[in-house]
Design a protein around this nucleic acid. Structure first.
Lengths: 360, 360
DNA sequence: TTGTACGCGTTATCAC
DNA sequence: GTGATAACGCGTACAA
């Protein structure tokens, strides 16, 4: 047995050294008004001398019953997640808000589109959870509920007891489709990201379109496009839809190529995200066609790169920063014991740029 | 006073309900081999019925003296950080490693290039810290040391007691410069990101180049470029250097324009990052010049977009994924009580593509 | 399987 | 006013 093994100093160590009680040392750190300035100085100096780095955050959390962490559940792994500029922008708003209230973000990336492993969620030290676009049957969500943690849902189906931030995806998509209809287009193609969580991709069958879909964003955008077309007399079942396994540029290019090689060749491509639309633009170029003379392209999100695209992309703007901020505010409120309240629904507005034009 | 206020169930609640001890319930969750399967079932069922979500992670952390969190300290705020593709890739490697060992990442973004607020670091629940490219005088680092947390440094000056992952920035930059010298270039311009943490930007004075710089990455790359030029008989003091306030494309464009409007006009631009180089390519186009006929451009990092650039970018490849992984492994090892060991130094290799060519 | 001694603070409430 | 006492908070792990 080692004599006097030098243990990490604690509040008690410091208290003993100064000759005061533990409570006083605690107050020196957390409630300076509860003791004289002179005593406080003495306490802090002694602490420094002893190499005491301040109250242990974990112990404090246990005592106060709150950590300062907001867990963020992501559907995909980090590389895929960061590849999505819309997420980056949203994260910005979320982080700002959370950070401004002395909280931090715990990142829980998923694997293969099903959200984080439930064991991770079970053990996560956070007192509120923000879930971003998980499939509704994600085991991670079940784990959150089992723990009874307050939950904020972004772009997800409403769950009882959870706060919700959503965007009017269907309305925005409808506006985009009507814009193209107004320009005279009648032959459309659609490129979406995953509708189901089975990892399948390729041309989307009618059965698949009609089956219950766990990703509301995909579903709503697709619905918005197709419903608007149907309302204008275009048979939605005859509109080819390409389901990409994710929202990456290259995947959009593949889908675009497939759509543009069909006959009749679509004169307009409706994409479920800007990234996919960038790929579609490339696909048009690959075939030596031009945008918008031969083919019009619309995206969705209005990420920063959209207006820099060549040509600048007509797209549906969703207020991404705002979305992140609102999610952060909701999380903070749940933390304070507030009830979830009614879902926050943000608008999505069409932004017309140069990638759409009248049919020749 | 409310009669029997329904408190959140704990291990004790469940133990009482089942009629066993707290230890047994704990074992039911953590050491299934310590009790009969039947009893374990009964415990877990009762827990479910009582709405007990499993052992409290914070309490467990307090008892075991370890949380499962790795804190990641970032110099900038999240938007700037995510704008850097090199960071995204590195983060990928880091997250993979950490996640594979049942740990998660706590994000501590900075503000204005000085790292996170020290109070945040002081209160962060993490038992190891990874710092990415902070200035050496960052208060956040001081806070880490005050707490005595194990620390992994990426792209930063060595600190006693900390583990280090670094890249041979100087060597890589030197190779890039020599490549251009071999092609016959004699008139150079350099675009770097911040060398100092004072937020200044623009043409870099000689005093500024020589002053002690807190960002080793900037310093090493700049040194690598200029030293190689000097070795070939080009006066480094006569080489114009543009200091951008960050590593974004648009900032590179601004710097590129300034350099290209000087006389003699540089025939080669050396950039401290690929993002800056992309901007430089744009600047060349803006002036109706072509790459590499009129101007050669080299970047640094070899981010995924580099080989897709127009023209594909000659750059210095650093093993970004590997860098993240190594940082993760080091963090995990420090967690296990290992000593920091000698710095990990990864190579940086020149990748020649189409953005560089012989002088006309 | 269980008793029980920790782990490290916070925050009333109480005494000087 | 100033500072101390002591009751939590919720588990883990080792000895019995």
């Amino acid at each position: 047995m080692e004599p006097d093994r030098p243990r990490r100093p604690t509040l008690d160590t410091v208290a003993a050294a100064v000759g005061v009680s533990r409570a006083t040392v605690s107050n020196a750190y957390n409630r300076p008004d509860q003791l004289s300035a002179a005593l406080r100085e003495r306490v802090l100096d002694t602490a420094r001398a002893l190499g005491y780095g301040g109250p242990d955050p974990v112990a404090r959390s246990l005592a106060t019953r709150r950590s300062a962490a907001v867990a963020l559940l992501l559907c995909d792994d980090l590389p895929s997640s960061f590849a999505d500029p819309a997420l980056s922008v949203l994260l910005d708003g979320l982080a700002q808000t959370v950070d401004g209230h002395d909280h931090w973000l715990v990142l829980m990336p998923g694997a293969g589109c099903n959200g984080p492993r439930p064991e991770m969620v079970t053990r996560a030290q956070a007192d509120v959870v923000v879930a971003y676009s998980l499939p509704e049957d994600s085991p991670a969500l079940a784990a959150v509920r089992a723990r009874g943690l307050p939950l904020v849902l972004i772009d997800q189906p409403v769950l009882p007891g959870a706060a919700v931030v959503a965007v009017d995806d269907e309305g925005g998509a409808g506006a985009a489709a009507r814009h193209l209809l107004d320009l005279g287009h009648r032959d459309f193609g659609v490129i979406t990201f995953s509708l189901h969580s089975d990892g399948l991709s390729g041309p989307m069958s009618l059965e698949r379109r009609r089956a219950h879909a766990p990703f509301p964003v995909t579903r709503d955008r697709l619905n918005g496009y197709l419903t608007a077309l149907a309302d204008a007399g275009v048979d939605p079942d005859a509109v080819p839809v390409w389901e990409a396994p994710g929202s990456e540029r290259e995947l959009g290019r593949v889908g675009g190529r497939w759509l543009l090689e069909r006959s009749p060749r679509p004169t307009a491509l409706l994409c479920a995200s800007d990234e996919l639309a960038f790929g579609a633009l490339q696909a048009v170029r690959d075939l030596d066609l031009t945008v918008p003379d031969d083919v019009s392209v619309v995206g969705f999100d209005d990420v920063p790169a959209a207006h820099r695209a060549d040509p600048p992309l007509t797209t549906v703007r969703q207020p991404l920063i705002e979305k992140g901020r609102r999610a952060g505010e909701l999380a903070l409120r749940l933390l304070d014991g507030e009830r979830p309240g009614t879902p926050v629904r943000l608008p999505a507005d069409l932004v017309v740029r140069a990638s759409t034009g009248p049919i020749e």
